[in-house]
């Protein structure tokens, strides 16, 4: 029998409405309120061994203290899964449910599920960390919400893992994973095209993103002849033994190497480890990727004030936006610390 602990606020526990929102945390044995609906759905497979109740205001007056007490109670009971709510569109209650689920899952390693309305504040705060089934905006949707909560909760308790968000009726947590499709690619592709040609509804298997928020252009440099300029590339040019182990694709690392070392280009020589372009021309002459000879000449002619003495490199092939943004941030911090005022980047 799967053992379940259920979390509720004062209203659903039957203590009272807004006037009782400061009801303190308490532990009750067995199922209470919506827990009885869950109990019916569980049949013989699971039981609610304990119900934890806390008033909405009481919880948020001291979230750390309440969470500590809740975690201690759950640790002692050691259930297979914790269910919270459903909280529908109730702001404070949904946040408390999600906070309880996050703490239970992250501190005790016990699976935890709540249910909220997709526009509820809890989704913004906990949406990528907490498993949440989608509910209607009010308790009128209790039957469907409890059904989804029970389905997903028991599946996690059995160790079976999540289904894709739309199959679970969950609010997406923002990550994608591979699954075996129900139909071959060609069938799906032609079905989708035929739907388009017949003006019938269809669902793209990948949603296009919202437009990237543009970065406002940085101010232009006022006088190039007084500017320190750095050279940066995503073309994977590294000393041939690749001492910093920059990945040849899907990079998570960047490095910088002295321009003097690149100018010498022997022992070690430089070569590209980038797995996304044909690097033979760059290997033969790295200036084709990092324009050192040209930039040095412009420095000597006084066109620029100074060439920063390092070049910066990573691999831009299959590199995720998250890592690219982080590495860009890290390189920018280094450049600012070194007094660099402008950069020339090359990409492959």
């Amino acid at each position: 029998m799967i053992r379940v602990v259920h979390y509720l606020n004062q209203f659903f526990a039957g203590i009272g409405g807004e006037d009782k929102a400061d009801a303190p945390f308490e532990v009750r044995e067995g199922a209470v309120g919506p827990g009885r609906v869950l109990k019916m759905l569980f049949g013989d497979e699971a039981e609610i061994v304990q119900t934890l109740v806390c008033g909405d205001n009481a919880f948020h007056a001291d979230p750390e203290g309440n969470l500590a007490a809740i975690i201690a109670a759950i640790a002692e009971t050691a259930p297979d899964v914790v269910l919270a709510g459903p909280a529908f569109n109730a702001g404070r209650y949904g946040l408390a449910c999600a906070a309880v689920c996050a703490a239970v899952n992250e501190e005790l390693g016990i699976p935890a599920v709540t249910g909220v309305y997709p526009d509820a504040p809890a989704v913004d705060v906990f949406g990528t960390r907490v498993v949440m089934v989608a509910t209607r905006d009010s308790a009128g949707g209790m039957k469907d919400a409890a059904g989804r909560l029970a389905d997903v909760g028991l599946r996690l308790a059995r160790g079976e893992g999540l289904l894709p968000a739309d199959e679970d009726g969950r609010i997406p947590m923002g990550y994608r994973a591979n699954r075996v499709a129900d139909k071959p690619v060609a069938t799906r592709a032609l079905d989708m095209l035929m739907a388009r040609l017949r003006d019938e509804p269809f669902t793209s298997e990948i949603e296009l993103p919202d437009q990237v928020e543009p970065v406002p252009p940085a101010p232009a440099v006022a006088d190039l002849s007084k500017t320190t300029v750095a050279l940066i590339t995503e073309g994977g040019l590294v000393p041939e033994d690749n001492p910093d182990r920059i990945e040849s694709s899907s990079a998570t690392k960047w490095a910088r190497y002295p321009l003097a070392m690149l100018a010498k280009n022997e022992n070690p020589a430089f070569k590209s480890i980038h797995a996304g372009y044909d690097s033979r021309w760059v290997d033969a002459d790295p200036n084709r990727l990092v324009p050192l000879d040209a930039a040095r000449a412009l420095e000597e002619e006084g066109v620029i004030g100074k060439l920063h003495e390092y070049f910066y490199v990573t691999t831009g092939n299959g590199t995720t936006v998250t890592h690219a943004e982080r590495m860009g941030e890290e390189i920018a911090i280094q450049l600012i610390a070194d007094g660099v005022q402008a950069a020339i980047l090359t990409s492959t």
Binding site: V215, P216, P217, A218, P219, A220, V221, I232, P291, G328, E329, I331, A332, I333, L335, I336, V340, Q341, A342, A343, I344, L345, T346, S347, T348
Partner: peptide
């Protein structure tokens, strides 16, 4: 770079 106030020119074949 630009977000951190460093004007940055990108030379690329894939504009």
């Amino acid at each position: 770079m630009e977000k951190n106030g460093i004007p940055a020119a990108l030379l690329t074949a894939m504009t």
